[in-house]
Design a protein around this nucleic acid. Structure first.
Length: 389
DNA sequence: TCTGGGGTCCTAGGACCC
DNA sequence: TCTGGGGTCCTAGGACCC
């Protein structure tokens, strides 16, 4: 989906169309916008100018991107680049509603859909009637049109022989574009790209590649496989080689079970375990209650309880502990997470606290944990990335 | 410019078991 | 006397993604 959060907000506030708008932050000051309702005059919207706080941008409209602001940028910096931009708080419930909506439109047309978060999916066109016409372009157009007519939202589609290439192709023609990428176009359309464009090559891997003089996927493709194995490890090296050659055998996965659920929060200022004891204790309890509520609402229990801290210097530590039996009880989660907390250095101030429950098991009709589903022989599960090659 | 929240997967060492 | 070869589970950290 194109600038998903921002686009959903523009449906609600059409008077903002064409203006630089950023979504982010939360809480502080901007809540009044929502309370005021959709009739708000332009002057009444909060601006980025003078923003103080720790938020980041989650989404920026294309008009705002002209000013160099974009996802993950701190709001304080964004305020300097584009002070006149309108700042709206994140309304995740609303985005989830539209997410469910556009996904249901897709599965009505093409049932094999893999969920990749609120604003992204993979779709298997292979056996959809008409899925092969014009290399998939006709079906892509139908999906785009159906979503737009129902919701008013635009999306960009990449059509390719596999997920790796489709994801890259989807970036070629944004917003509201379609790109059909054929295998024989690898040299001309993929190899000139930066390695960073590959889903799975992040900042660290990119840095290391550049240090070896590898900038583009063409550079990467020319390195001998064995050289990559030697420098990047058996699994990752082999995967890098396959990626550079546009090869990816992962199927589109339509069903999956959650592995963990967590809640975390960044404080408005760094806190100290001793000096801010009361405040921290309250936040900690709330986090445990929220995770427990999430688990209960979705029908899961978990055995591994963990905490996460981010110190003032941004270092992250985690501690966890596995219980004999899975739980979704706030008090037990809080007690166990409390023990975990005792094992970390609490002399230093920290900015974030999180609580996580892993080792999830779904609750059955009887209210008892289901035995973990055995991989069925009829439909073998996808091989893990490192087992592919 | 001091950098959110919610996830997944991988690695690696140690405990423990047969 | 200086010592195996699996396997699984637990824990901590880190890369990466939306």
């Amino acid at each position: 989906m194109d600038a998903f959060y921002a686009s959903v907000e523009l449906l609600r506030y059409p008077q903002l169309k064409g203006l630089p708008v950023v979504i982010g932050g939360g809480r502080r000051g901007v809540d009044s916008v929502l309370a005021a309702g959709p009739e708000l005059p332009l002057e009444a919207f909060p601006r980025l100018a003078g923003y103080t706080g720790r938020g980041v941008i989650t989404t920026a409209t294309y008009a705002a991107r002209q000013f160099g602001v974009g996802s993950a940028m701190g709001l304080m910096k964004a305020a300097r680049l584009c002070p006149q931009a309108i700042l709206l708080p994140v309304d995740f419930d609303e985005y989830r509603k539209f997410s469910r909506w556009f996904k249901s439109i897709i599965t009505d047309i093409a049932p094999l859909m893999e969920d990749r978060g609120v604003d992204e999916v993979y779709i298997d066109f292979t056996d959809v009637p008409g899925g092969q016409r014009e290399g998939g372009r006709v079906l892509a157009r139908l999906i785009q049109k159906s979503i737009f007519e129902a919701t008013g939202l635009t999306c960009s589609v990449g059509v390719a022989p596999n997920k790796l290439l489709a994801k890259m192709a989807s970036e070629f023609n944004k917003p509201n574009g379609i790109s059909v990428l054929h295998e024989h176009e690898l040299r001309d359309r993929i190899w000139p790209l930066s390695c960073r464009k590959v889903n799975g090559i992040g900042p660290k891997a990119e840095q290391k590649l550049v240090a070896h003089g590898i900038h583009t996927l063409g550079d990467l493709a020319q390195r001998p496989r064995d050289w990559l194995l030697a420098h990047f490890g058996k699994a990752y090296g082999a995967w890098l080689h396959e990626a550079a050659w546009g090869r990816d055998a992962r199927p589109v996965v339509t069903e999956s079970e959650p592995v963990s659920m967590s809640r975390e929060t960044t404080f408005e200022r760094d806190l100290h375990a001793r000096h801010d004891r009361a405040e921290l204790s309250q936040v900690f309890t709330q986090l445990c209650e929220r995770v427990a509520a999430d688990l209960q609402r979705k029908g899961y229990v978990g055995r591994t309880i963990g905490v996460k801290l981010r110190y003032d210097d941004f270092r992250i530590v985690t501690r966890d502990q596995t219980l004999g039996e899975a739980t979704a009880d706030a008090a037990l989660i809080r007690r166990t997470a409390g023990l975990c907390l005792k094992r970390v250095d609490l002399t230093r101030r920290f900015r974030l606290l999180g609580v996580r429950v892993g080792g999830l098991q779904r609750l059955g009709e009887d209210g008892l944990p289901q035995p973990p589903a055995a991989p069925s022989a009829a439909a073998p599960t996808a091989p893990a990335m490192d087992q592919l090659f």
